[in-house]
């Protein structure tokens, strides 16, 4: 019975990540962390350009709440989307899958791909979970929804344009953003099906403030 419960909870493992702040993530047993993912002192103040200054509360597809700052200390690729998107979002997700597979394994294990929904009404945790299943996204992906003001703030900071049309679909920029371990924007990639090598290189670069690998 217990194993079933474990399996079930592993299903929405991204939530575990958000909850387990400071916990050892799976696969990080290797002694040396890649430079992008060097430890950040937990008490160090956020840098001036850190997006983690946003204190909005987000909810993931397991219904767990957290701030973006819980992602601190790992490289993050963040994009905005909505689960009922028919045209571009599946392509955006496949671009991000491509980016993820271009990363060395040690980096891939630490990196998180974060998808934040525009659709504050329809994208409930259940709808996000259904999207996760449909796109077969593993624990390396975090799916978030939040209050409208938080979505607007994040979109403004990322430079994402979006607009809901009469059918409830969102026209939006196809853009993903690489954040370093401090939550600072280090790279942005606009458009679909482009060359993701620069973005992959950006994910692997260390944050300036990060301490050297232990």
């Amino acid at each position: 019975m217990k194993t079933i419960a474990v399996l079930l909870s592993g299903f929405a493992a991204a939530s575990a990540l958000l909850a387990a702040e400071g916990a050892v993530p799976p696969g990080s047993g290797s002694a040396i962390r890649p430079p992008c993912c060097a430890a950040i002192a937990p008490d160090a103040p956020l840098t001036a350009r850190s997006l983690y200054q946003l204190d909005a509360i987000w909810t993931n597809d397991a219904g767990r709440v957290s701030k973006l700052a819980t992602l601190r200390g790992r490289p993050v690729v963040i994009a905005m989307f909505f689960a009922s998107c028919e045209y571009a979002c599946p392509i955006l997700v496949s671009d991000l899958q491509r980016l993820r597979s271009a990363l060395p394994e040690a980096v891939r294990e630490r990196a998180q791909i974060v998808l934040v929904s525009f659709d504050t009404v329809r994208d409930t945790p259940a709808a996000l979970l259904a999207f996760r299943e449909r796109m077969t996204l593993d624990a390396g992906w975090t799916l978030l929804r939040g209050p409208e003001a938080a979505v607007q703030d994040l979109a403004m900071l990322l430079g994402v344009k979006y607009k809901q049309d009469a059918r409830g679909q969102f026209a939006h920029s196809n853009l993903f953003t690489v954040l370093n371990a401090e939550g600072e924007i280090v790279h942005q990639h606009a458009g679909l099906q482009g060359d993701i090598s620069e973005a992959a290189a950006a994910v692997m670069r260390p944050a300036k403030s990060a301490s050297p690998s232990p």
């Binding site: 571009a88 607007q152 979006y162 607009k163 969102f170 196809n174 099906q193």
Partner: peptide, 26 residues
């Protein structure tokens, strides 16, 4: 408040059809 809903691309020749790869659904 919602200035970021204006989706004109930088390239004037592209605006008649808005760049499909930059903007979903536009």
């Amino acid at each position: 408040d919602d200035f970021n809903t204006a989706m004109v691309t930088g390239e004037s020749r592209g605006d008649s059809g808005l760049d499909r790869n930059l903007f979903c659904g536009a």
